[in-house]
Design a binder for these strands. Structure first.
Length: 420
RNA sequence: GCGGCUAUGGUGUAACGGUUAACACUGGAGCUUGUGGAGCUCUCAAUCAGGGUUCGAUUCCCUGUAGCCGCCCCA
């Protein structure tokens, strides 16, 4: 026996490893729905799918700035392999795609539209909506500095929300410009430390009372009027105008959107849930013009975003937009006696050849239990194959939802299922 | 990483420091040898782990572990 059979008699826990999820069929069905929906939206705009290993050298996540050292130490899964190499489970896809693009920059044609839907890992304390593993759509447009590239990416984000069934009242896309923020800081003569503090305060602005925000600003010797421009930066105003002209009105300027302390250099955006109990960012992204600088002298500009499955699931659930589960099998074939199994096989084979997914019972339990079983699996239709049906060559198809029945000849069966 | 709350069958809950740890759902068997969803009967199944206080701990205390909530962070 293998070593993992417990000799002490103590049973192993059925819990998955801390913070990661088991995908039971209904969970996997949602993940597939998520993936298919994302794929449909981005491919319509011409994005091509790439993929990479879950493992990367740790170095890939170092050197993106001093503030990341702590993140590496505390939030990246790392281990040492048998060749003494430091290995990481990818915590995000962006460095990987930057590496791949930089590796082939001479042969790739820009603008380059790429997407991927990987699972990523972060060693964090698990909470609702924040686990150690999640699946994330990554959409990136490389090699263009055009404002229309930013518009395309934001449009894809909008298109995704629409594809998931959200309407304009369900969410708002908030835009800001890191470039404009940099200019503002320069004109106020803020050093990098103060700039970071200011960004932190802006980020929290939505969560604290106005006067507290003002008090915090005074700590930096600033006033709200100085840091909150009355008018959106020029490129933001233009983007909003473009979308207005296209009939999209839930895209707004939001000076509090800064997207962390990272590598963004231009337009940044966040898609916000407007639900009053869940007023937070669902996902976001922006323009980063220096990302491939890690690998090459010549930076390739890019704009993109990441969209996680957990945040979308919570959003859809709260809005009643989750699709209902349907199993692969359209029809379940039950038999009164185990010895009729070959006939069930034959009929199932006929249906499958006709393009209908069919599952059979082996007749080991009572007919009533077999039907219950089909219901429990949410299989929509049932056929009982018994002596009588075999003799007559006609089969009764029952709709397990409504209970309606219909007697059909063998030859009509596949056609019946394909028409529903 | 920090703080708070919680931990009882597969699930959701109950039990003053004191009987055989109760109830519902689910699972299994049956009432019903060829037709589900209801009803009834029977049945499987639990005090997170380790220590302490006590005559006696599911109950009180400590530690660990896990979950939830908030903070930090969210590249």
């Amino acid at each position: 026996m293998a070593d993992y059979v417990q000799k002490s008699g103590q049973k192993l826990s059925t819990e998955p490893y801390k913070g990661v999820r088991d995908f039971y069929p209904e969970d996997q069905a949602f993940l597939n729905y998520f993936i298919d929906t994302c794929r449909g939206v981005v491919e319509k705009v011409g994005y091509e799918e790439y993929h990479a290993s879950i493992l990367e050298p740790v170095e890939l996540y170092k050197g993106k700035g001093a503030e990341n050292e702590e993140i590496i130490r505390e939030q990246v899964y790392t281990f040492t392999d048998r060749g003494e190499r430091e290995v990481a489970l990818r915590p995000e896809m962006t460095p990987t795609v930057a590496r791949m693009v930089a590796a082939r920059r001479r042969e790739l044609a820009f603008p380059l539209r790429w997407y991927s839907i990987p699972n990523v890992f972060r060693y964090e304390r698990p909470q609702r909506g924040r686990l150690r593993e999640h699946w994330q759509l990554n959409v990136d447009l490389f090699g263009s500095r055009s404002l229309y590239a930013d518009a395309e990416i934001i449009g894809v984000a909008y298109g995704l929300m629409a594809a998931f069934g959200a309407t304009e009242s369900d969410f708002v896309i908030k835009l800001n410009s890191r470039a404009a923020l940099d200019e503002l800081c320069a004109s106020l003569k803020l050093d990098d430390t103060k700039k970071k503090v200011l960004m932190g305060l802006l980020d929290k602005m939505g969560k604290v009372p106005t006067d507290e925000f003002a008090a915090n600003l005074r700590g930096l010797g600033l006033t709200p009027a100085q840091v909150l421009p009355a008018r959106p930066p020029k490129e933001i105003a233009q983007l909003i105008e473009e979308f207005k002209n296209a009939g999209i009105s839930n895209i707004v300027y939001a000076p509090e959107v800064v997207r962390g302390f990272n590598y963004y250099t231009g337009v940044v955006f966040e898609v916000f849930d407007t639900h009053k109990d869940n007023s937070r960012a669902l996902f976001g992204g922006g323009r980063y013009d220096n990302l491939t600088a890690l690998f090459d002298e010549d930076p390739i500009p890019g704009v993109g975003f990441g969209l996680g499955d957990v945040g979308i699931h919570n959003f859809l659930e709260s809005r009643g937009l989750l699709p209902s589960y349907t199993p692969p099998a359209k029809v379940y074939i039950a038999i009164p006696e185990p010895r009729l199994a070959p006939h069930a096989q034959t009929l199932a084979g006929l249906l499958r050849e006709g393009g209908v997914n069919a599952a059979i019972d082996f007749g080991e339990r009572k007919l009533g239990d077999q039907i219950k079983n089909a219901s429990k699996h949410k299989i929509p239709y049932l056929i009982v194959v018994g002596e009588k049906e075999l003799a007559e060559g006609r089969f009764v198809v029952r709709d397990l939802g409504s209970g309606e029945e219909q007697a059909l000849d063998k030859g009509q069966l596949a056609e019946f299922f394909l028409n529903i």
